[in-house]
Amino acid sequence: MHEMSVALAVVEQVTEAAERAGDVTAVRSVRLRIGELAGVAPDALSFCFELACAGTLLEGAELVTEPVAGRARCTSCAHEWAVGMPPRLTCPGCGGTRTDLCTGRDLQIAAVEWEDGTPAPAGAPIQEEC
């Protein structure tokens, strides 16, 4: 299950950040930005996140997901549009097929809240965008 590997990566990255911060005793919440084209099912990820957090600093932490819409830009006419699902990658403006996907593949830790209420620094993307 892809969502389990994502959940484990999030737990690992947040745990490493907590260790670098020093005296963090627990994590209250983790907010993730998830693109509609990232191939991650938020419900499945929530289930896997709870399992991955067991026995760690993140046990009991809330997972908050923030959806990111997929958007593309035509390289010929510069028209930009929401690609939707399934993704429409042909330009609705000129019919061109040379497009750049601008957003929608995002998978990033956007925020973490430590037990003391102090927000942690935003994390790096779990998966880099092209």
Rank of each mutant, 00 (worst) to 15 (best):
C48K: 09
A9V: 04
E19S: 11
R71A: 12
G93D: 15
T75L: 13
R33P: 00
G70P: 01
A21E: 09
T103R: 02
V112Q: 04
L101Y: 06
E66F: 00
E16N: 05
P119R: 12
C74Q: 10
L107G: 04
E59W: 09
E12S: 13
V30Q: 04
E59V: 07
V10T: 01
E115C: 08
R20A: 14
A9M: 11
R71T: 15
E59G: 01
G123D: 05
S46L: 10
V6Q: 00
A21R: 11
A44M: 11
G39M: 03
P121R: 14
R105M: 09
E50F: 01
E50D: 11
A38S: 15
S46T: 14
R98P: 02
A52M: 02
Q127W: 12
A7K: 03
W114T: 07
S76T: 13
E16P: 00
A54T: 14
F47W: 13
A41L: 15
E16H: 09
R105K: 11
E59S: 04
C74W: 01
D100K: 08
V6M: 01
L101N: 02
Q108D: 14
A9I: 03
M4Q: 11
L45T: 03
V112Y: 00
F49S: 04
T15S: 15
E19N: 10
L107S: 08
A21C: 07
G39V: 06
I109E: 04
E16A: 15
V27L: 05
E36V: 12
E129W: 03
E36F: 05
A44L: 15
P125R: 12
V6I: 15
D23L: 02
E19I: 08
P67S: 04
E129P: 00
S46I: 03
A18Q: 03
T56G: 05
T75M: 11
S76H: 05
G39H: 04
G96Q: 04
A122G: 10
T99M: 06
A61F: 06
V40E: 05
L37T: 01
T75V: 10
C130A: 14
L32D: 04
E128C: 09
C77I: 04
G95S: 10
A18R: 03
G104A: 11
T90Q: 13
G70W: 00
G95M: 13
C74P: 06
R33D: 12
L37Y: 03
G93K: 05
H2T: 12
T97I: 09
E36L: 10
V30E: 09
L107Q: 08
V30Y: 03
L58H: 11
G96S: 07
E115R: 15
A124K: 11
E19M: 09
Q13H: 12
E129F: 01
E16D: 14
A26V: 06
A7M: 10
T15C: 02
R88E: 14
Q13E: 13
A69V: 09
A120T: 06
V30A: 05
R105E: 15
A21V: 08
A110L: 08
L45C: 04
R73C: 12
C48T: 03
F47C: 02
E129T: 11
T56H: 00
F49H: 01
E62R: 14
H2L: 02
A120G: 15
A18V: 06
G70I: 00
P121S: 11
L32I: 02
P86C: 03
D106C: 09
A111Q: 12
E129M: 10
E62K: 12
P86W: 02
P67R: 09
G22Y: 05
L51S: 13
